[in-house]
Simulated assay, not measured.
Amino acid sequence: MARRAVLVSMAADSTIADVAQTLDNPVEYVRRILEKLERCRRAHGDAQVRIGVRGRVECPNYLIEYALLDPKTKQTSVHPDAAYSGSTHRELAPRHIEEARNWSPEEMNITAVSALIGRLRNPRD
């Protein structure tokens, strides 16, 4: 029998932790995001992720970003690294990054995502 999608909406300010229970395969989804975050951190020294809030809640797309501190102004600015498909974990075209309303304004840093995967792998029931 074909699997039917259950329509579940997510809040516009959702994080991965907020939608973890609705993901098709939470541990694998978060593990793949953690891989992308580690790659970004190695390249830029920082990494964070925001999820897409206008797509499928069972495998939302995600945007990997990094923050840079301007030494002159002491201002931190956030820059996109890449956007990825939540179902295939393949990089999306750069045009997907530009549509700000697609992305949650709330991010999770690499430490928070690492803690989340730990909780998913070892739930305390």
Score class of each variant (00 low, 15 high):
92 L>K: 05
94 P>C: 11
94 P>K: 13
84 Y>F: 14
78 V>A: 05
93 A>Q: 13
83 A>W: 02
87 S>L: 14
74 K>C: 03
83 A>Q: 07
75 Q>L: 12
89 H>A: 10
77 S>G: 08
90 R>A: 06
79 H>L: 15
75 Q>K: 15
86 G>Q: 06
77 S>V: 11
66 Y>G: 02
96 H>T: 04
99 E>T: 15
98 E>Q: 12
97 I>A: 05
86 G>N: 04
90 R>N: 06
96 H>Q: 06
73 T>P: 02
80 P>A: 12
71 P>Y: 05
92 L>Q: 07
98 E>D: 11
79 H>W: 15
81 D>V: 02
88 T>A: 06
85 S>Q: 08
72 K>S: 12
72 K>L: 14
76 T>H: 03
76 T>Q: 09
79 H>I: 13
82 A>N: 11
78 V>F: 07
82 A>T: 07
84 Y>S: 00
73 T>W: 10
97 I>N: 08
78 V>P: 01
98 E>R: 14
81 D>I: 00
67 A>S: 12
80 P>W: 04
92 L>E: 06
67 A>P: 00
92 L>M: 11
76 T>I: 13
76 T>D: 03
87 S>V: 07
92 L>D: 04
96 H>P: 00
75 Q>P: 01
92 L>C: 06
81 D>K: 00
75 Q>W: 10
74 K>N: 05
68 L>Q: 15
77 S>C: 07
94 P>A: 13
82 A>L: 06
